[in-house]
Simulated assay, not measured.
Amino acid sequence: MPLYKNLNEILNKFCSKIYQTTILLPYLISIVVVSYIVYAFLSMDTGLINKFLEGIGKDTVLWYNEAKFWPYILILVYCWKSFGFNTIIYYAVIVGIDTNLFEAAMVDGASKIKQIIHITLPSLKPTVIVMTILAIGRIFYSDFGLFYQVPMDSGALYSATNVIDTYVYRALFYIGDYGMSAAASLYQSVVGFLLVVGANALVRKLDADNALF
């Protein structure tokens, strides 16, 4: 018997729901709540990380004044928050795979790894391609809450957290530069559209069955 199971192979419904809820919960949490969770770890005076550093005799860090740490912090927060949503998408595809394929593979003596390589991954290919094309179209977009709310709009972090979305917001509400805000937003839309069209054209050339249009 294998020591591991796919999420869709867990027969105990209670355990399955617990796992699904645990995975999806971060995605459902408001970005404002996430920002305070991050603050609870990074606060200068009461943050868990600085308390730990004090406990082991190390110097504390002014996290909200040190821009060099924030590319890594934001990547970590984004992965933690978005992991559940992406997991549910791929989980839904895996659940829809015909179980007869896995049963036939087991009869032929295929291991779990071989089942994943020859059945699960090929079944996920269309979804992976679609998700990739959509992600390419949003390269010039960003999660506004992630780059504005999580760093607490700290001016010292602008070199690491100022993206097009936060720039548009500040130009619109702080400076009142409506023209530049509109131009930046238009640039995002046009370039995003062109990237989607280009990525889809490449996919259509390589594998026409999995292209979006």
Rank of each mutant, 00 (worst) to 15 (best):
S43M: 09
T99V: 08
Y19Q: 09
Y187S: 10
M152D: 00
D98V: 01
Y187W: 06
A104W: 03
T127Q: 11
I37P: 04
D45C: 14
D45I: 12
L157P: 09
H118V: 10
I97H: 08
L194S: 09
F144M: 05
D45W: 12
L3D: 08
I37S: 14
W70I: 07
N8W: 08
D108H: 02
L62E: 07
R170V: 14
F69V: 12
W80V: 12
F83R: 01
G84K: 06
D153N: 10
L202A: 15
Q115L: 01
Y169I: 10
S30Y: 10
L25T: 09
W70E: 14
L28V: 12
S16F: 08
N12W: 01
F193Y: 15
A184W: 04
W70D: 07
I88P: 00
M180G: 11
S154A: 15
P26H: 11
Y141S: 02
L7M: 02
T60R: 00
L202G: 13
M152G: 00
E9Q: 14
A160K: 01
A171F: 15
A201P: 00
Y4R: 03
T21L: 12
V128C: 11
A199K: 04
Q20F: 10
L124N: 14
V191Q: 11
T166N: 03
K5S: 03
D153S: 08
P126L: 13
G145D: 05
E54G: 09
F140G: 00
E103K: 04
F41S: 12
S43Y: 09
I49A: 03
A199L: 09
V77T: 07
I31Y: 05
I113E: 02
I117A: 11
Y64Q: 06
Y4M: 09
Y174F: 11
I136E: 10
C79V: 09
A171V: 13
N50D: 08
D177T: 04
L121D: 14
S189I: 07
Y141R: 01
K68E: 14
V168Y: 02
L206R: 01
Y90P: 09
A92P: 12
I129Y: 08
G84V: 13
V77N: 05
I129P: 04
I97Y: 06
N86M: 13
